[in-house]
Amino acid sequence: MPIVVNLDVMMAKRKMSLNELSEKVGLTLANLSILKTGKAKAIRFSTLEAICKVLECQPADILEFVKE
C-alpha cells in the first residue's frame, strides 16, 4: 500500500513504548500493533486525533504517501 505508517518513528522520537501509547490513547495493543505494522486498512479520525494528541505531532508525521 502506498500509505506508510510511521508510528514507530514517532514513538521512538517521543521515547514511548507501545504499552504506554496504548494506555494513553485507549486503544488495545492488538489494534495498535495492526496500525504499527501497516496491516490496517483504515484509521478513524478519532484514533488519529488521540494518537496525535498523545505524541504531540501532526497526522502527516504518522502517515506518509510513498509512490510505488
Binding site: L27, N31, L35, K39, A40, K41, A42
Partner: peptide
Amino acid sequence: QTENELTV
C-alpha cells in the same frame, strides 16, 4: 468484515 476488523 476484514476491512472492519482492520480499521483502528
